[in-house]
Amino acid sequence: MIIRLADCPSQPWKNGLGRTREIAVQPSVDGGDGFLWRVSVAEVDSAAPFSAFPGIDRQIVLLDGAGFTMKLDDGRVHALTTPFVPFAFAGEAKVDVALAGGPTRDFNLMVRRAQARGEVLPWHEPATRRPDPATVLVFCARGSIDTAGGRLHVGDAWRPPPRAVDPLTLCDGALALVVRVKPRAS
């Protein structure tokens, strides 16, 4: 299934201090926090703190803009200024933000820590690849990508069907953010 970012409505952050577009969530929930995993694209246009998500592991990836510096309550300071490089942190962390320039957009993965673990992998070499069974979403961050469901352009995402065997083709200059989620071992 192909998801067009333009079809994902902008909605307020949980804390009301920013905007996000939810691309996919599993299981589907209406505005609740009962998800196993969630993928979104956030618009950061002010130095607002991030929303808290207790029990959630997060990964964030700068898509465009000058980025920002994240000051976490565990003492870490991270400059999210290099596009397409994932950064992981705990959802319950208090995160203050200082913009490096103007507004930015970032890609976000949230996974319920007690039930699963997730990762965002940048794929950027022109090639044909097969997503593995843990792949739940492929996001086109740059260029175009051919999938079994059709062509992705910047901002589009593809949810592979269960046990997908069809390959993806990254066209010249394409960059995919591949989201993998695996259940935690009991």
Rank of each mutant, 00 (worst) to 15 (best):
G65L: 02
A47R: 07
L17N: 07
G18I: 04
L17M: 13
A24T: 05
V41G: 01
G34S: 12
S51M: 08
V39Q: 00
F50A: 07
I60K: 02
S51K: 11
D64I: 09
R19L: 15
A24D: 01
G65Y: 05
F68G: 03
G55M: 12
Q59K: 10
G65M: 06
G65C: 06
F68T: 02
G67A: 06
W37R: 08
V29C: 14
P27H: 05
L17A: 13
I60M: 09
I56C: 07
W37L: 06
A52Y: 05
T20E: 10
I60D: 01
R19V: 15
G31S: 13
D33R: 05
T69Y: 05
D30S: 14
G34L: 09
D45V: 13
A52K: 11
S46H: 14
G67C: 04
L62A: 10
A52P: 00
V41K: 03
E43T: 14
A66C: 12
G32N: 12
A42F: 03
P49L: 07
R21G: 06
A47V: 07
A42T: 08
I56R: 05
R19G: 01
G31P: 01
T20C: 08
L62T: 02
F68L: 15
V25G: 06
R58F: 01
M70R: 04
F50N: 03
R21F: 05
V61Q: 00
S40H: 03
A24N: 01
S28D: 13
Q26A: 13
M70K: 02
M70C: 12
P54S: 11
G18N: 02
E22Y: 04
T20L: 13
G67Q: 06
R19F: 10
E22T: 14
A47T: 06
W37N: 00
G18T: 12
R19S: 11
V44S: 04
L62G: 02
L63R: 01
A66M: 12
S46C: 15
G18P: 05
P27S: 11
D64L: 02
G32C: 09
E43S: 12
I56V: 15
F53Y: 14
Q59L: 14
R19C: 09
G65R: 03
V39N: 01
Q26V: 14
E43A: 14
T20Q: 08
D45L: 07
A24M: 11
P27C: 07
G67I: 03
